Computed example of a mutant assay.
Amino acid sequence: MIYLLVLIGLLGCMALLDARYRLFFWARPAAAAAVMAVGLAYFLAWDVWAIAEGIFLHRDSPLMTGIMLAHQLPLEEAFFLAFLCYQTMILFTGALAWLRRREPRTAESAVGGRTTREARP
C-alpha cells in the first residue's frame, strides 16, 4: 500500500509542476490524454510480453497492495508506468519551454521604410 501511495504522491507532484508551468495536460489536455493512453498501453503490453517470456516476475512485498491486474502484473506497475510516461512528458515539454525562453528575441522596427530585426537584451 505504501508504494501505491508514493506513486500517487509523485503523480500529484508532476501534476503540480504541469499546472504551474502549463507544460502538458494544462497546455493541451486532449493531446496529453492521448499521449498518456498510448504510452501506458505500450508499456503495459511490453510488461505483459516480458512476463510471458519469464523476464519480469512479481515478488510479494508488504509495501504493495497485493492487487493484481493480470498474472504477475501488480496494480502498482500501472501507476509506475503512468508516472514514468507523465514524468517523461513533463521533462520533454519543460525542456522545450526552457529552450524557447533562451532563444534570442527579436523586435521589428521600421527604419527608413525598411523592416529590420534587432536582438533584444
Rank of each mutant, 00 (worst) to 15 (best):
Y3W: 13
L4G: 01
G9I: 02
L11M: 14
C13H: 06
M14D: 05
L16I: 14
L16G: 10
L16F: 14
L17H: 05
D18H: 05
D18C: 06
D18M: 03
A19F: 04
Y21K: 03
F25W: 09
F25M: 06
F25T: 02
F25S: 01
W26E: 00
R28H: 13
P29A: 09
M36D: 04
A37C: 10
G39F: 04
G39R: 01
A41R: 05
L44W: 02
L44E: 05
L44I: 12
W46T: 13
W46S: 13
V48M: 09
I51T: 03
I51D: 00
F56I: 04
R59I: 11
S61I: 11
T65M: 02
T65V: 02
I67N: 04
M68W: 02
L69T: 00
A70C: 06
A70M: 09
A70Y: 09
F80M: 08
F80V: 04
L81Q: 07
F83L: 12
L84I: 03
C85D: 09
Q87G: 03
T88A: 15
M89Q: 13
F92V: 15
A95N: 07
A95T: 14
A97T: 07
W98M: 12
R100C: 11
R101F: 05
P104D: 10
R105D: 06
T106F: 15
E108S: 14
S109R: 15
S109V: 15
V111P: 01
G112L: 08
G113D: 03
T115H: 04
T116P: 00
A119T: 13
R120T: 14
